[in-house]
Nucleic acid binder design. Structure first.
Length: 126
DNA sequence: AAGGTGATTGTTCAG
DNA sequence: CTGAACAATCACCTT
């Protein structure tokens, strides 16, 4: 099967050409500085991250001069795009399984929310 | 000394 | 539909 289980069926709808204003170019950072205490389940690592795990080791061996993950990230991104679809599928497959587990966590989260147990609303009650 | 930042793409949620 | 934020990781920089 050269096809990943990446919810292609559902994604097919979004896979359309939405080249209007999809994803702007935020020059700002994406760091979360505080308050991750949300009950919401953390997002599962993407296929890219799994690729990093494997690529990182190889990259350091081939480039012992490079240490920081930032530099590797750039190299990974570049390499990632050069990778063929079939190769990426391997990582997508892993991520897909992870998402399945995350989906359960999300369902439990929603269920819990319905129980009125938690409100993600800004409850700064301290 | 200690902590926040930056960079990578993908995924997911919320409005 | 669209946008914005966050997932791992670690050297480097700022305070």
């Amino acid at each position: 099967m050269t096809r990943p289980n990446t919810r292609q069926s559902s994604r097919e709808n979004q896979t359309k050409k939405l080249s209007t204003t999809t994803t702007l170019k935020p020059k700002k950072k994406q760091k979360q500085k505080k308050r991750d205490g949300a009950d919401k389940p953390k997002k599962p690592p993407t296929a890219f991250f799994y690729f990093l795990e494997d690529f990182r080791k190889t990259f350091q061996e081939q480039n012992p001069d490079i240490k920081s993950m930032r530099d590797i990230g750039k190299a990974c991104g570049e390499k990632w795009k050069t990778m063929t679809y079939e190769e990426k599928v391997s990582y997508y497959d892993i991520a897909t399984e992870k998402r399945a587990e995350f989906e359960k966590a999300m369902a439990a989260y929603v269920k819990r929310k319905e129980s009125g147990e938690v409100s993600e609303e800004s409850e700064d009650y301290d």
